[in-house]
Design a protein around this nucleic acid. Structure first.
Length: 427
RNA sequence: GGAGAGGUGGCAGAGUGGUUGAAUGCGUCAGUCUCGAAAACUGAUUUACCCGCAAGGGUAACGAGGGUUCGAAUCCCUCCCUCUCCGCCA
């Protein structure tokens, strides 16, 4: 979330930003009003408590029972005042916070303004492969090569679940190994995170697990305050909740492996076939905590690593500088890698395979992640960044469709062969 | 899951109703000394919020939330977590 006092002082800029992002700016006025009121109440609360403390201190010098009783009465009288202030303060703070979470992060001045159509291609790697035969889509390939069982997935867990089989199962493990090792070589600390997290952690990262069941993007676990995570960004960011770093410890870079679970509410009918949009997948995620001065450089570093990983897989992809309307709440700037998928749409299309966001202090504020440094008093919020190293199912779609051969076989990308144990998948 | 113990500042560890936001030790930082370092000595060293340009002042926080009291780290209740032993398991 943004700082309430920042919103109070920059209401017009915040509203303009909301509009650019296609979000309602209605919450801005509420925050301004509630934050103003909160400050008044906080002041009154302090003054009243100080009076009360004076009365209590008087007990040391009170000699007679009458003196003591008088102090007792005065103290009791003030209690009512304090209670009234506290009640209103609680309500005001709760309402302010409820409004606050509706306001998205501010936006990098260079991010293209507009909706999805304003997304800007900023780099192209490789060229879409041309085929001298009609390429199959990955669902066909999976079926012919016995690489996935969607029916069994449906039988066991429902629609949009799947079993990976044979080389596809090995390919997933290979992708995890390859992505993990690449990030580790770049100085990222490898971790395996929980696949569940508390509601507060989800909210700190910017998810809304308390939304209605119809719009909620995450699965909640009945009778607990836990959710299945939609990305390791949640657990990696939550890992240092309420922590105060020393500036010298930063940046902290992690690469985490987890399963990801998404309800895909509202996505019914889109990409229903195959592995492209599923309820569960395995993902290797990069995450960094750093000082504000460093976040732009680390954002580019993560983007470069993603480019390295997908270039290494021999895939054709381009890089998108995501437009304001498509950023989501927490991102200040976001780059997506979209890989060429020959079986997508009519005659192939680019499909998102990774995404990296600079969330500035938007997540850190809610999660209480700060740092101390020599150049300033007190603490500052860190900046957090995240980026996909590899999302296995999407990568699998791109690999299968791009590496297919006229005879129906699929060549294994060279970097993955050590873990798959063969060069070609054929039956 | 059962039984017991416990949760205090960066760490260790006092404190069981009234200048205790918190002794003491360690650590860290600055200074003195030194050619330099070590040692020693001196000082500083939680966070959030409110008022203030600042200096400064005020309020809150001793796992979390509630209660008792004029006053709670200290008493009562609920919850959470950690440790030890037992059970169970991968």
């Amino acid at each position: 979330m943004l700082d309430a006092d920042y919103i109070r002082q920059n209401a017009d800029a915040v509203k303009a930003n909301c509009r650019n992002r296609g979000a309602s700016d209605a919450a801005v006025d509420s925050v301004v009003a509630l934050e103003t009121r909160r400050k008044e109440l906080a002041q009154k609360r302090g003054e009243t408590a100080a009076k009360k403390n004076q009365i209590s201190a008087g007990f040391k010098n009170a000699k007679t029972d009458e003196d003591k009783q008088a102090l007792r009465d005065q103290g009791k009288a003030i209690d009512a005042e304090v209670a009234a202030i506290d009640t209103e303060l609680k309500t005001v703070e709760a309402n302010r916070d409820a409004a606050l979470v509706l306001i998205p992060n501010m936006t990098h001045p260079d991010a293209p303004v507009g909706g999805e159509t304003a997304n800007k291609v900023v780099a192209q790697f490789g060229e879409p492969r041309t085929f001298d035969f009609k390429p199959k889509d990955h669902v066909d390939l999976c079926e012919k090569l016995d690489l996935a069982d969607f029916e069994a997935g449906t039988k066991v867990a429902g629609q949009k679940f799947y079993f990976l089989k044979n080389e596809a199962a090995l390919l997933e493990i290979a992708l995890v190994q390859y992505a993990m090792h690449t990030a580790v070589r770049a100085g990222y600390t490898p971790v395996i995170t929980p696949d569940l997290a508390r509601v507060e952690v989800l909210e700190g990262i910017g998810f809304m697990p308390r939304d209605s069941a119809e719009t909620r993007q995450v699965y909640t676990v009945a009778d607990t305050d836990l959710c299945l995570i939609a990305t390791a960004e949640i657990t990696l960011g939550g890992m240092h909740r309420d922590r105060i770093f020393d500036e010298a410890e930063l940046p902290k870079r992690y690469v985490g492996l987890s399963h990801c679970f998404r309800t895909e509410a509202g996505a019914a009918g889109r990409d229903t076939r195959g592995l492209y949009r599923v309820h569960q997948f395995t993902k290797v995620e990069m995450f960094a905590f750093c000082t504000p001065e460093n976040s732009e450089a680390i954002h580019l570093e993560i983007k470069a690593l993603e480019e390295q990983i997908f270039s290494g897989l021999g895939l054709c992809f381009h890089v998108i500088d995501t437009a304001t309307g498509d950023l989501g709440g927490p991102a200040y700037r976001k780059y997506d890698l979209e890989a060429w998928m020959p079986g997508r749409g009519e005659g192939g299309a680019y499909g998102e395979v990774t995404s990296t966001s600079n969330c500035t202090d938007f997540q850190a504020r809610r999660l209480g992640i700060r740092y101390k440094g020599k150049g300033f008093k007190g603490t500052r919020f860190v900046h957090t960044l995240n980026g996909t190293a590899v999302a296995c199912t999407r990568a699998l779609v791109a690999i299968l469709e791009n590496y297919q051969q006229a005879d129906g076989s699929v060549i294994v990308p060279e970097v993955l062969r050590p873990w798959v144990g063969k060069d070609v998948i054929k039956r």
